Computed example of a mutant assay.
Amino acid sequence: MSTEFIIPGAAGPGSQPQDEDGQTLDYMEMPREMVTFDLPIAPEPEDTVGMEAGKAKLNELARILASYQIGAPAPVLELTGMEPKDVGLINQILGEGEVSMVGGGRLQVQEAVFAGVWRVLHFDDQGGLQRDTIEVGAWPDTVRDQVFVGASETCAQAEEPLPASVFNAPALLSEIADKVATRNPGDIAHSINLSLLPHTEEDLQYLAEKLGVGGTIVLSRGYGNCRVSSTRTNGVWWVQYYNAQDAIILNSIEIVDVPAVVCAAQEDIDDSAERLAEVMEIYE
């Protein structure tokens, strides 16, 4: 399987300068599609008659938001088994926010328009929906708990002989290994900006092979298009920003619990609490 495809953009269009003759290499197109929820369309109160369970769940969510503090365990609201009309109301009110995630084929996550509110769909091995939940937090604990399960606690190092055209990957792997070995949960991110460092296409491919390919992919549209991919090395992420032409403008590796671009902040949670409470007032 192609490294460019699994870690989108790490070795794709925009990651390398043009050749001297002005030509660029062609690569497999980056996969960008992800199923998301519809944009919010708040129904009129008279159109929600009979959806009391859905409104009660949204009011419960508003109360949770009003008291939630970042760092506390993520509260979980269970939607599994609710009537479709109630779930439909919840989907309409929550809408689609800036961040989407997939986790290992079993999780699909969509941030609501209320930052810090996450719709989490849990699937079985056959692709059937097992659970439908809402989580409140900086990012979903469900994803956090599984993202690096089975990942290596140490970073693999370069081996001799090196593949052709691999020059700077060994030094980068040494730096990553040092940071992985000394990192503690909650530490600030250590970022390696590959866009500012000399490297070859083969360097990036070698790095991807040594770090391994994780199962969690995050798309964020908050400040331009950003794609965050986990690796099979504990605490190590690829973070890539794209311009409107899908060319990479920033390609980096971050050693951190989770990159900040993925997370909601406390002020986001507080704002979401206020806005959801305002929305639900019309249904009282």
Rank of each mutant, 00 (worst) to 15 (best):
S165V: 09
G50M: 08
E284R: 14
G127I: 04
V120Y: 03
E175C: 05
V117E: 07
R275K: 13
A208T: 12
A115F: 10
L219P: 00
E98M: 12
S165P: 00
P259M: 00
E98G: 07
G22V: 05
V256G: 01
C155I: 04
D26Y: 05
Q18M: 14
S195C: 06
E111H: 02
G105R: 01
M1N: 12
Y283V: 09
L204S: 15
A53V: 03
T80M: 06
I217E: 10
P170A: 08
E20P: 00
G71P: 00
D124S: 05
E209Y: 10
S252Y: 01
H190N: 12
S195W: 03
P31V: 05
V49E: 13
D246G: 02
L94Q: 03
S100C: 11
V236G: 07
D86F: 02
I6Y: 10
G97F: 07
P40I: 06
Q92D: 15
G222P: 02
A177V: 01
V236D: 11
A181V: 04
G12I: 06
S195V: 07
M30D: 14
P185C: 06
E160F: 03
F5K: 14
V35R: 14
T142P: 01
E201F: 09
A265Y: 08
D270C: 07
R119G: 02
A189H: 04
A169R: 03
D125F: 10
Q245E: 15
L162G: 12
V49I: 15
F114N: 01
V120W: 01
F123C: 07
E20R: 11
S165T: 09
V236R: 06
R63K: 13
V136Y: 02
E135Y: 03
F114V: 03
Q146N: 10
L65E: 10
S174R: 12
E160D: 15
G222D: 10
P198A: 12
P17N: 06
T80R: 09
V87Q: 09
L172G: 02
I248F: 07
P45N: 05
S272M: 07
S152N: 11
G12L: 06
V149P: 03
C263M: 15
Q16T: 11
F37I: 13
D270H: 05
P170I: 02
R131H: 12
M82F: 08
E52S: 13
Y27I: 07
Q157K: 12
L207K: 04
Q23D: 13
G103R: 04
D26P: 00
I176P: 04
A156P: 09
Q23S: 15
D38M: 12
N184V: 06
Y223Q: 14
H190V: 14
I255P: 03
S15Y: 09
T233R: 05
K179V: 15
D271V: 03
Q23M: 13
P73K: 08
E284M: 09
L194W: 05
D257Q: 05
L194E: 01
W139Y: 15
D38I: 08
F37N: 11
V35M: 11
V35A: 13
R221F: 13
K85Q: 14
Y68M: 08
V261K: 03
V99G: 05
P185M: 05
I253P: 02
A138L: 06
I41N: 11
K179N: 10
